[in-house]
Amino acid sequence: QCIKQELICKWIDPEQLSNPKKSCNKTFSTMHELVTHVSVEHVGGP
């Protein structure tokens, strides 16, 4: 049986000017979605 898990993006953008810096905190249900999000939204490139 599949256990529902919540994956949370903890990326902190080093360019943020606010202190304390905020992490992204978007939630995902699969590791694939999380990896895709980080690749596209934070790292950039294909």
Rank of each mutant, 00 (worst) to 15 (best):
Q5V: 01
T30H: 03
S23K: 15
I8E: 09
L34E: 02
K4V: 03
M31Q: 15
T30E: 06
Q5E: 14
S23L: 14
E41S: 11
T36H: 06
P46S: 09
L17R: 06
S23G: 13
G45Y: 03
T36Y: 06
C9T: 02
I3D: 03
E33H: 04
C24R: 01
V43L: 06
V35M: 14
H32Q: 14
I12C: 11
K21D: 05
L17Y: 03
T27P: 08
T30W: 02
I3M: 13
H32N: 14
H37S: 01
L7I: 09
E33S: 04
I12R: 07
S29Q: 13
E15R: 07
S18I: 04
S18G: 04
T30Y: 00
M31W: 03
H42R: 01
I3E: 05
K4L: 08
G45Q: 07
K22C: 05
W11C: 02
C9F: 00
T27W: 06
K10G: 08
E41H: 06
G44E: 07
C2T: 13
P46M: 14
N19K: 10
E15H: 07
S29D: 15
D13N: 15
L17Q: 08
P46L: 03
H32P: 13
M31S: 15
T36C: 07
N25S: 13
Q1P: 00
C2L: 15
I12K: 09
P14I: 00
G44R: 12
N19D: 09
P14C: 05
P20C: 01
Q16A: 08
F28D: 00
Q1A: 15
S29L: 12
V38E: 15
H37A: 02
N25P: 14
H32R: 12
G45V: 07
S39Q: 14
M31V: 05
V43Q: 13
Q5Y: 03
I8S: 11
L34Y: 15
I3W: 05
T36K: 13
S39F: 02
E15C: 08
S23Y: 12
K10S: 10
L7T: 11
P14M: 05
T30G: 08
T30C: 00
N19S: 09
V38I: 10
G44T: 10
Q1L: 05
P46K: 15
K10N: 15
C2D: 13
C2Y: 11
V43M: 09
S39I: 02
V35S: 15
Q5G: 06
Q16E: 04
K22V: 11
K26P: 03
P14D: 02
Q5W: 01
T30N: 15
I8M: 11
P46H: 14
I3K: 02
V38R: 15
I12L: 03
T30L: 01
M31R: 14
F28G: 03
H37F: 00
I3F: 03
L17V: 13
I8F: 13
I3Q: 14
V38T: 12
W11A: 07
V43P: 13
E41G: 06
E15S: 11
V40Q: 12
V43W: 05
H42Q: 00
K22E: 06
P20F: 05
L34P: 05
V38N: 11
H32D: 12
Q16L: 12
H37R: 01
P20H: 01
K4M: 09
K21Q: 13
V38S: 14
G45S: 07
S29T: 15
I3C: 02
Q16N: 04
C2W: 01
V38K: 15
N25E: 06
K21C: 02
K4G: 06
E6H: 02
E33M: 01
T36P: 01
E41I: 07
E15K: 12
T27S: 11
Q1S: 15
C2S: 12
W11M: 08
F28Y: 02
V35C: 11
L34H: 03
I3N: 03
P20Q: 06
M31A: 13
G45I: 13
E15N: 06
L7K: 15
I3L: 06
S29M: 09
K21T: 08
H42V: 00
T30K: 04
L17N: 13
L17P: 13
S29G: 11
S18T: 13
G45F: 07
M31H: 15
N25G: 14
C9V: 01
V38W: 15
V38H: 09
S18N: 14
K21M: 07
P14H: 07
N25M: 10
T36A: 08
T36R: 11
H32F: 11
Q5H: 05
S39N: 11
S29E: 15
H37D: 04
H37T: 00
Q5C: 02
E6R: 06
Q16I: 09
V40Y: 06
I8T: 11
P20K: 07
N25D: 10
V40R: 08
K10A: 07
N19Y: 04
S23H: 13
E6T: 02
